[in-house]
């Protein structure tokens, strides 16, 4: 880190890191949601489990 930046606690030009973080956050949450929705469409018996907590072992 440049000496002039010591004390300011920050380097200029951090927008790149900010954009990467926000983009990654959206990619991950949208990816999780899409994966969950696609998997739920392929699981037929799911509709029979509405509200239940399943059978006992």
């Amino acid at each position: 880190m440049d000496e002039s930046q010591v004390g300011s606690g920050m380097v200029d030009g951090a927008w790149g890191y900010v954009i990467v973080v926000y983009a990654a956050t959206w990619v991950v949450v949208v990816g999780l949601a899409v994966r969950a929705l696609l998997a739920s469409r392929g699981s037929g018996p799911a509709s029979r489990t509405d509200g239940g907590v399943g059978g006992s072992t």
Binding site: A36, L37, A39, S40, S43, P45, A46, R48, G54
Partner: peptide, 18 residues
């Protein structure tokens, strides 16, 4: 978002496990 995804996954996983 997290809770909704967990519930959607829960239904799918429960169907598979049962």
């Amino acid at each position: 978002i997290s809770l909704a995804i967990c519930v959607i996954r829960w239904r799918t996983i429960l169907a598979t496990v049962q």
